[in-house]
Simulated scan of single mutants.
Amino acid sequence: MSLADMPPLRDALERHDLLARKSFGQHFLLDLNITRKIARLAGIGPEDVVVEVGPGPGGLTRALLETGARVVAIEMDSRFMPILAELGEAADQRLEVVQGDALKVDASRAVGGVPAHVVANLPYNVGTQLLINWLTGPFLPVSMTLMFQKEVAERIAAQVNDDAYGRLAVIAQTVCEAKIVMDLPARAFTPPPKVNSAVIKLVPRAVIPPAAELAALERVTAAAFGQRRKMLRSSLKALGGGDLCEKAGISPDIRAENVPIEGFLALARATLP
Rank of each mutant, 00 (worst) to 15 (best):
P46S: 11
G68Y: 04
V98L: 05
V220F: 03
D31P: 13
E89T: 00
L30F: 07
F148T: 00
V175K: 08
L32E: 15
P204C: 07
V50P: 04
N33I: 04
N133C: 04
L217K: 10
G263R: 07
I132L: 15
A42I: 12
A73S: 13
K104T: 13
N133Q: 15
G127N: 09
P57A: 04
V111T: 01
I208T: 07
R228L: 03
V50F: 01
I250C: 13
L232W: 12
A157C: 14
P260T: 12
M144Q: 06
I83M: 06
N33Y: 02
K104Y: 02
P7L: 08
S234F: 13
A12P: 01
L217S: 12
V203Y: 01
L184K: 03
L19F: 14
V50A: 02
I38L: 07
G68C: 07
L18M: 04
A215W: 00
H27M: 10
I38W: 02
F28S: 07
G240L: 06
S23Q: 15
A42K: 05
S2C: 08
N33K: 14
L60F: 03
E262H: 12
G226T: 07
N133W: 03
A157V: 14
V203G: 05
M231C: 08
P252W: 10
G45E: 03
P204H: 11
A223T: 06
F139L: 10
Y165V: 10
L265I: 10
T271H: 05
V53W: 02
T174W: 11
A157I: 12
